[in-house]
């Protein structure tokens, strides 16, 4: 095994873990938040949160 590549993969995995917050609710549904791009997604869909118009 290429030790350098393996470390890079580990580092990448760590970065992914550290950059994502997950909320798992009692009804087993869950949402993810990416700290990197500040996007929120339902787990398993591509729905993204947007702000409403301000008035």
């Amino acid at each position: 095994m290429d030790v350098t590549l393996s470390y890079a993969a580990w580092l990448s995995q760590q970065a992914t873990d550290d950059n994502t917050l997950t909320a798992l609710f009692d009804d087993a549904s869950s949402v993810l938040f990416s700290k990197q791009d500040h996007e929120t997604h339902l787990v398993g869909t591509a729905t993204e949160a947007k702000e409403p118009d301000v008035d």
């Binding site: 909320a23 609710f25 009692d26 009804d27 549904s29 949402v31 929120t40 339902l42 787990v43 949160a49």
Partner: peptide, 8 residues
């Protein structure tokens, strides 16, 4: 409504 849907 599921809690995740409510969250969104």
């Amino acid at each position: 409504v599921s809690q995740a849907d409510a969250f969104m």
